[in-house]
Protein backbone atom coordinates (compact mmCIF):
# COMPACT_ATOMS: atom_id res chain seq x y z
CA UNK A 1 0.00 0.00 0.00
CA UNK A 2 1.35 3.41 -0.94
CA UNK A 3 2.02 5.81 1.93
CA UNK A 4 -0.06 8.63 0.44
CA UNK A 5 -2.92 6.58 -0.98
CA UNK A 6 -6.49 7.50 -0.09
CA UNK A 7 -6.98 4.35 2.05
CA UNK A 8 -4.01 5.24 4.26
CA UNK A 9 -5.28 8.80 4.66
CA UNK A 10 -8.58 7.51 5.99
CA UNK A 11 -7.39 4.45 7.95
CA UNK A 12 -4.36 5.90 9.72
CA UNK A 13 -6.23 8.45 11.87
CA UNK A 14 -8.94 5.90 12.69
CA UNK A 15 -6.29 3.48 13.94
CA UNK A 16 -4.78 6.23 16.12
CA UNK A 17 -8.21 6.99 17.60
CA UNK A 18 -8.80 3.29 18.34
CA UNK A 19 -5.37 3.04 20.00
CA UNK A 20 -6.15 6.10 22.17
CA UNK A 21 -9.45 4.54 23.25
CA UNK A 22 -7.62 1.29 24.15
CA UNK A 23 -5.04 3.34 26.11
CA UNK A 24 -7.89 5.10 27.93
CA UNK A 25 -9.44 1.72 28.83
CA UNK A 26 -6.05 0.39 30.06
CA UNK A 27 -5.39 3.48 32.21
CA UNK A 28 -8.85 3.19 33.82
CA UNK A 29 -8.38 -0.50 34.55
CA UNK A 30 -4.80 -0.29 35.84
CA UNK A 31 -5.18 2.82 38.02
CA UNK A 32 -8.66 1.83 39.15
CA UNK A 33 -9.69 5.46 38.80
CA UNK A 34 -13.14 6.46 40.11
CA UNK A 35 -16.07 6.25 37.72
CA UNK A 36 -17.02 9.82 38.68
CA UNK A 37 -13.69 11.20 37.51
CA UNK A 38 -13.06 9.18 34.38
CA UNK A 39 -15.49 6.51 33.22
CA UNK A 40 -14.26 3.71 30.96
CA UNK A 41 -14.87 4.13 27.19
CA UNK A 42 -17.34 1.24 27.31
CA UNK A 43 -19.36 2.99 30.00
CA UNK A 44 -19.43 6.21 27.98
CA UNK A 45 -20.65 4.21 25.01
CA UNK A 46 -23.40 2.61 27.08
CA UNK A 47 -24.45 5.99 28.47
CA UNK A 48 -24.60 7.35 24.92
CA UNK A 49 -26.86 4.53 23.72
CA UNK A 50 -29.08 4.50 26.81
CA UNK A 51 -29.63 8.26 26.91
CA UNK A 52 -29.73 8.81 23.19
CA UNK A 53 -33.48 8.88 22.78
CA UNK A 54 -34.19 10.52 26.12
CA UNK A 55 -31.89 13.52 26.15
CA UNK A 56 -28.92 13.45 23.79
CA UNK A 57 -30.89 13.43 20.54
CA UNK A 58 -32.92 16.49 21.60
CA UNK A 59 -29.80 18.30 22.85
CA UNK A 60 -27.99 17.49 19.61
CA UNK A 61 -30.87 18.86 17.55
CA UNK A 62 -30.87 22.03 19.64
CA UNK A 63 -27.10 22.51 19.20
CA UNK A 64 -27.15 21.72 15.49
CA UNK A 65 -29.90 24.29 15.01
CA UNK A 66 -27.92 27.00 16.81
CA UNK A 67 -24.69 26.12 14.98
CA UNK A 68 -26.20 25.97 11.50
CA UNK A 69 -28.34 29.09 11.78
CA UNK A 70 -25.44 31.02 13.33
CA UNK A 71 -22.96 29.79 10.73
CA UNK A 72 -25.29 30.46 7.81
CA UNK A 73 -25.74 34.04 8.99
CA UNK A 74 -22.03 34.52 9.74
CA UNK A 75 -20.77 33.36 6.31
CA UNK A 76 -22.56 35.92 4.10
CA UNK A 77 -22.18 38.61 6.77
CA UNK A 78 -18.42 38.10 7.04
CA UNK A 79 -18.12 37.96 3.26
CA UNK A 80 -20.04 41.19 2.71
CA UNK A 81 -18.10 43.04 5.43
CA UNK A 82 -14.84 41.93 3.79
CA UNK A 83 -16.04 42.69 0.25
CA UNK A 84 -17.16 46.23 1.04
CA UNK A 85 -14.22 47.21 3.22
CA UNK A 86 -11.72 45.77 0.71
CA UNK A 87 -12.75 48.52 -1.72
CA UNK A 88 -11.48 51.33 0.51
CA UNK A 89 -7.91 51.52 1.77
CA UNK A 90 -8.99 53.49 4.82
CA UNK A 91 -11.64 50.90 5.65
CA UNK A 92 -9.08 48.08 5.40
CA UNK A 93 -6.74 49.93 7.75
CA UNK A 94 -9.44 50.77 10.29
CA UNK A 95 -11.68 47.69 10.20
CA UNK A 96 -9.04 44.95 10.07
CA UNK A 97 -7.68 45.52 13.62
CA UNK A 98 -11.21 45.77 15.03
CA UNK A 99 -12.14 42.48 13.37
CA UNK A 100 -9.04 40.83 14.81
CA UNK A 101 -9.92 42.07 18.32
CA UNK A 102 -13.48 40.78 17.92
CA UNK A 103 -12.19 37.47 16.58
CA UNK A 104 -10.08 36.98 19.70
CA UNK A 105 -12.79 38.02 22.18
CA UNK A 106 -14.58 35.01 23.69
CA UNK A 107 -18.17 35.98 22.95
CA UNK A 108 -19.74 33.70 25.57
CA UNK A 109 -18.39 36.11 28.18
CA UNK A 110 -20.94 38.62 26.91
CA UNK A 111 -23.87 36.42 27.89
CA UNK A 112 -24.28 37.77 31.45
CA UNK A 113 -24.41 41.30 30.00
CA UNK A 114 -26.83 40.38 27.24
CA UNK A 115 -29.04 38.68 29.84
CA UNK A 116 -29.39 42.06 31.53
CA UNK A 117 -30.86 43.53 28.35
CA UNK A 118 -32.99 40.74 26.94
CA UNK A 119 -33.33 38.14 29.64
CA UNK A 120 -32.80 34.55 28.57
CA UNK A 121 -33.87 34.36 24.98
CA UNK A 122 -33.09 31.30 22.82
CA UNK A 123 -31.89 33.54 19.96
CA UNK A 124 -29.13 34.75 22.30
CA UNK A 125 -27.19 31.57 21.48
CA UNK A 126 -27.42 32.23 17.76
CA UNK A 127 -26.20 35.78 18.37
CA UNK A 128 -23.16 34.41 20.25
CA UNK A 129 -22.30 32.08 17.35
CA UNK A 130 -22.71 34.87 14.78
CA UNK A 131 -20.54 37.26 16.81
CA UNK A 132 -17.84 34.63 17.20
CA UNK A 133 -17.73 33.36 13.60
CA UNK A 134 -18.23 36.52 11.53
CA UNK A 135 -14.92 38.23 12.37
CA UNK A 136 -12.73 35.22 11.52
CA UNK A 137 -14.51 34.75 8.18
CA UNK A 138 -14.27 38.48 7.44
CA UNK A 139 -10.58 38.74 8.42
CA UNK A 140 -9.51 35.85 6.21
CA UNK A 141 -11.66 36.86 3.24
CA UNK A 142 -10.43 40.43 3.53
CA UNK A 143 -6.79 39.41 3.56
CA UNK A 144 -7.53 37.40 0.41
CA UNK A 145 -9.33 40.32 -1.23
CA UNK A 146 -6.62 42.88 -0.62
CA UNK A 147 -3.88 40.73 -2.09
CA UNK A 148 -4.33 40.52 -5.85
CA UNK A 149 -1.15 40.13 -7.96
CA UNK A 150 -0.35 43.27 -9.96
CA UNK A 151 -0.35 41.32 -13.24
CA UNK A 152 -3.96 40.24 -12.71
CA UNK A 153 -5.03 43.81 -11.99
CA UNK A 154 -3.31 44.83 -15.23
CA UNK A 155 -5.19 42.14 -17.13
CA UNK A 156 -8.49 43.50 -15.87
CA UNK A 157 -7.49 47.05 -16.74
CA UNK A 158 -6.38 45.88 -20.19
CA UNK A 159 -9.88 44.48 -20.74
CA UNK A 160 -11.41 47.73 -19.57
CA UNK A 161 -13.09 46.16 -16.49
CA UNK A 162 -14.56 48.45 -13.87
CA UNK A 163 -14.09 47.95 -10.12
CA UNK A 164 -16.89 45.52 -9.34
CA UNK A 165 -16.49 43.50 -12.50
CA UNK A 166 -12.85 42.81 -11.74
CA UNK A 167 -13.81 42.12 -8.11
CA UNK A 168 -16.07 39.25 -9.11
CA UNK A 169 -14.00 38.00 -12.05
CA UNK A 170 -10.58 38.08 -10.38
CA UNK A 171 -10.50 39.16 -6.74
CA UNK A 172 -13.03 36.65 -5.41
CA UNK A 173 -11.76 33.53 -7.21
CA UNK A 174 -8.19 34.58 -6.44
CA UNK A 175 -9.08 34.81 -2.73
CA UNK A 176 -10.92 31.45 -2.61
CA UNK A 177 -8.15 29.60 -0.72
CA UNK A 178 -8.10 32.30 2.01
CA UNK A 179 -11.91 32.48 2.09
CA UNK A 180 -12.02 28.74 2.78
CA UNK A 181 -9.40 29.09 5.52
CA UNK A 182 -11.79 31.56 7.15
CA UNK A 183 -14.78 29.26 6.61
CA UNK A 184 -12.95 26.33 8.22
CA UNK A 185 -11.77 28.38 11.20
CA UNK A 186 -15.38 29.54 11.40
CA UNK A 187 -16.49 25.89 11.79
CA UNK A 188 -14.18 25.45 14.76
CA UNK A 189 -15.25 28.67 16.46
CA UNK A 190 -18.89 27.90 15.67
CA UNK A 191 -18.77 24.64 17.65
CA UNK A 192 -16.92 26.25 20.54
CA UNK A 193 -19.29 29.23 20.61
CA UNK A 194 -22.39 27.00 20.49
CA UNK A 195 -21.15 24.87 23.40
CA UNK A 196 -20.16 27.82 25.57
CA UNK A 197 -23.47 29.52 24.74
CA UNK A 198 -25.29 26.38 25.93
CA UNK A 199 -23.32 26.44 29.16
CA UNK A 200 -23.88 30.09 29.92
CA UNK A 201 -27.44 30.47 28.60
CA UNK A 202 -28.82 27.05 29.53
CA UNK A 203 -32.13 25.90 28.03
CA UNK A 204 -30.98 22.69 26.34
CA UNK A 205 -28.17 21.93 23.94
CA UNK A 206 -25.17 19.66 24.33
CA UNK A 207 -23.17 22.18 26.36
CA UNK A 208 -26.04 22.48 28.80
CA UNK A 209 -26.29 18.65 29.04
CA UNK A 210 -22.56 18.39 29.80
CA UNK A 211 -22.90 20.92 32.60
CA UNK A 212 -26.01 19.33 34.13
CA UNK A 213 -24.65 15.81 33.87
CA UNK A 214 -21.35 16.63 35.53
CA UNK A 215 -23.06 18.53 38.35
CA UNK A 216 -25.15 15.38 38.96
CA UNK A 217 -21.96 13.25 38.85
CA UNK A 218 -23.33 11.48 35.77
CA UNK A 219 -19.84 11.71 34.30
CA UNK A 220 -20.50 9.01 31.69
CA UNK A 221 -23.38 11.04 30.24
CA UNK A 222 -21.23 14.19 30.25
CA UNK A 223 -18.53 12.39 28.26
CA UNK A 224 -21.13 10.99 25.89
CA UNK A 225 -22.36 14.52 25.18
CA UNK A 226 -18.76 15.70 24.67
CA UNK A 227 -18.21 12.95 22.10
CA UNK A 228 -21.32 14.00 20.19
CA UNK A 229 -20.24 17.66 20.31
CA UNK A 230 -16.84 16.70 18.90
CA UNK A 231 -18.50 14.70 16.13
CA UNK A 232 -20.67 17.71 15.23
CA UNK A 233 -17.63 19.97 14.97
CA UNK A 234 -15.74 17.47 12.84
CA UNK A 235 -18.75 16.90 10.59
CA UNK A 236 -19.20 20.62 9.91
CA UNK A 237 -15.49 20.98 9.19
CA UNK A 238 -15.52 17.99 6.83
CA UNK A 239 -18.52 19.31 4.89
CA UNK A 240 -16.73 22.63 4.31
CA UNK A 241 -13.49 20.81 3.36
CA UNK A 242 -15.33 18.70 0.78
CA UNK A 243 -16.90 21.82 -0.73
CA UNK A 244 -13.45 23.42 -0.78
CA UNK A 245 -11.90 20.50 -2.65
CA UNK A 246 -14.68 20.77 -5.26
CA UNK A 247 -14.22 24.50 -5.74
CA UNK A 248 -10.49 25.13 -5.25
CA UNK A 249 -9.28 22.60 -7.79
CA UNK A 250 -6.31 24.61 -9.07
CA UNK A 251 -4.08 24.56 -5.98
Amino acid sequence: MKINSKAVNICAPIIVIILLIILWQIICTVTNISFHVLPKPGEVGTALVENFRGTILLDTMASVKVMLIGYCIAVPLGFVIAAISSQFTLAVRSIMPVLIILMLTPMATLVPIFKLFWGVDPTLKILIVVLQCTPVIAVNSLSGFIYVPEAKKELMRALGCRKWESFFRVTVPNAMPQIFTGLKLGCILCTIAAMSADISVGQGGLGYRIQVASSLSATDLAYAAIVVAAILGVALYMIVSVIESRIVTWK
Partner: peptide, 20 residues
Protein backbone atom coordinates in the same frame (compact mmCIF):
# COMPACT_ATOMS: atom_id res chain seq x y z
CA UNK B 1 -12.88 52.85 -22.96
CA UNK B 2 -13.86 49.19 -23.34
CA UNK B 3 -14.58 49.88 -27.00
CA UNK B 4 -10.95 50.90 -27.55
CA UNK B 5 -9.52 48.13 -25.34
CA UNK B 6 -11.39 45.67 -27.55
CA UNK B 7 -9.24 46.76 -30.50
CA UNK B 8 -6.05 45.82 -28.65
CA UNK B 9 -4.93 42.26 -28.03
CA UNK B 10 -2.46 42.12 -25.16
CA UNK B 11 0.11 39.45 -24.33
CA UNK B 12 1.75 39.92 -20.93
CA UNK B 13 5.26 39.32 -19.69
CA UNK B 14 4.26 36.16 -17.83
CA UNK B 15 1.40 34.17 -19.30
CA UNK B 16 -0.93 35.90 -16.79
CA UNK B 17 -3.66 33.27 -17.16
CA UNK B 18 -6.31 32.94 -14.48
CA UNK B 19 -5.37 29.66 -12.84
CA UNK B 20 -8.93 28.81 -11.76
Amino acid sequence: SKELQKKMGIVFQGDNLLEW
